[in-house]
Design a protein around this nucleic acid. Structure first.
Lengths: 191, 191
DNA sequence: ACCTGAACACCGTTCAAGT
DNA sequence: ACCTGAACACCGTTCAAGT
């Protein structure tokens, strides 16, 4: 039976997890599927689009967020972070896909815009639309960047290039700091 | 007269600015210098190290920061941002170099750690060492991520793939939000 | 010491031709 | 409709051999 885009993406994710982003080539995916390299291009436009598809899979659907907005923001960020950490080079892949897929707004529901749900939550909590977008972007970029650095350090450690001993994980500290900063926007804007 | 590492880096920066990160290959740099590809490897360990060197050049030396800490933090971030925007794909290049060069701490003064000076400033302003590292990292990752997304959107726009009209620049909003969040850490820790 | 020539082991992508 | 074979135009890196 014929190849499908879904099969290609699943196979690509396996290579990513086992060998890393640097070894994720179209030719390797094709070999893994027992197919000629050119065959992939019947199902997938090009490598960039394939990577965006992988990023979408890694990020997944937004969790339902409950409780007061402060803890919902924390939940959102920690959930994104843990999804990124489930795959080798997950943060790096998603960070560049977010930039590439960027036309990120409203009318383009297909965009890779994980912060959209967070933005809506912040509006519901009392933020202006502009502040909510900026605040959601802040949490998103912080999470992607911090996780990317953390993950690449972790991979160095696995290779024994230990560098400085356990760099304490400052993710939660940074996250709280951002949530604190949001407080003003919510209470200021609320009537 | 012989080639130097400095010459190679300068030549690489020109290619970056004119053709972008995707076209920045060792072979192209060599051609630009009128030299065989292998010649570069006498002066530079490999492409990764060369990219880290470029990132160091782009980031440059820390500006002297003055005034109250709140405005110094703003200065720091805006200065980093404008340096990233001076080069095509500057944010993307520096973001990945920061992750790659990571063993980022103390004893390794050669690391690409632009947030170090910011961390010292925050300690001087009254933060604990741990909070200062986390806060500086937050500003750094936010700045890299936001600028990377902004820059790639800007490049799409140049190609006419306009996507959504002028997405308003939420950099300053996000930055203020983070600075607000820092306030608590400074005043809480201060005696 | 510094560089060339030439090779090795790869890439992404296209496209006629087959089934 | 879906895939193969084969090509095109590239990569990063190594290393004997030259000067």
């Amino acid at each position: 039976m014929p190849l499908t885009a879904d099969e290609i993406e699943r196979s690509a994710l396996e290579i990513l997890d086992r060998y890393g982003l640097g070894d994720l080539s179209m030719r390797r995916i094709a070999t893994g599927l027992g197919v000629a390299p050119g065959a992939l291009y019947w199902h997938v436009a090009n490598k960039q689009q394939l990577l965006i598809g992988l990023a979408r899979r890694i990020v997944g659907d937004p969790e339902p967020l409950d409780g007061p907005w402060q803890s919902a923001v924390g939940q959102w960020a920690r959930s994104l972070r843990s999804r990124l950490l489930e795959h080798r080079d997950g943060a790096e892949l998603v960070a560049s896909a977010v930039a590439l897929a960027d036309p990120v707004d409203a009318d383009h529901p297909d965009a890779l815009a994980p912060a959209a749900s967070l933005g809506r939550l912040l509006v519901a909590a009392g933020m202006s639309a502009g502040d909510a977008v900026a605040a959601a972007d802040t949490v998103l970029h912080f999470t992607l960047g911090q996780t990317m650095a953390w993950q690449s350090r972790a991979q160095f450690r696995e290779l024994g290039i230990t560098g400085p001993g356990a760099v304490s994980d400052s993710f939660d500290l940074g996250l709280e700091l951002i949530i604190d900063g949001m407080q003003n926007r919510v209470s200021t804007t609320q009537r």
